[in-house]
């Protein structure tokens, strides 16, 4: 009777010991993940913890971010040092190409294209005095769409604030 009680107690202790081991890694992982929030460029990093050893994988914005993540992770309680830092540094994205859809030069050819396009639309007048095609008059909603489509193909922004739409 006594023996079974003792063995039960031992079994219980073993069980407690085992289960207490598991959440520990989970706790460390949560702790590291929280700590990494201090590094804004670490959004795509992954944290793995095995028996207290932390492995960082994923992408970091730059070398500073990589080093900072390691530092932050190392400072978390329960982490076995050193932290395995397998973070890769993402090269900075190529600068965004300037939009292709605008021509800045209002030359004779562009003006002619605009005039050609507007020629068959009734009720619209175009003025190039300001350097930007200024449209005025009153057109139907369908014609207004044609005008905007023309703007896109001429690759020049029109000023249509004075262009009215027929109700």
């Amino acid at each position: 009777m006594k023996i079974t009680k003792i063995s039960l107690a031992i079994a219980l202790m073993i069980a407690v010991a085992f289960t207490s081991c598991k959440p520990k890694d989970a706790d460390i992982q949560a702790g590291v993940e929280t700590a990494l929030k201090a590094e804004p460029k670490s959004a795509t990093t992954k944290v793995e913890v095995k028996e207290g050893v932390v492995t960082l994988t994923g992408e970091c914005g730059d070398a500073v971010c990589k080093a900072n993540c390691e530092k932050l992770a190392s400072a978390v309680k329960g982490v076995k040092l050193p932290v395995v830092n397998n973070l890769t540094v993402t090269p900075p994205p190529a600068p965004v190409a300037a939009p292709v859809s605008t021509t800045t030069v209002m030359d004779a050819k562009v003006m002619q294209t605009i005039k050609d396009g507007l020629k068959d639309i009734k009720g619209v007048v175009v003025d190039f005095a300001t350097g930007k095609p200024m449209l005025s008059g009153e057109v139907s909603a369908a014609d207004r769409m044609k005008i905007m489509q023309m703007q896109s193909s001429a690759k020049v922004m029109f000023d249509v604030t004075k262009l009215m739409t027929k109700k």
Binding site: P99, V100, S101, T102, A141, R144, M145, M148, Q151, S152, S153, K155, M157, F158, D159, V160, T161, L163, T165
Partner: peptide, 10 residues
């Protein structure tokens, strides 16, 4: 009315 002049749809 597409009058805002904030979109260039090419």
């Amino acid at each position: 009315d597409m009058a805002s002049g904030d979109l260039m749809m090419n």
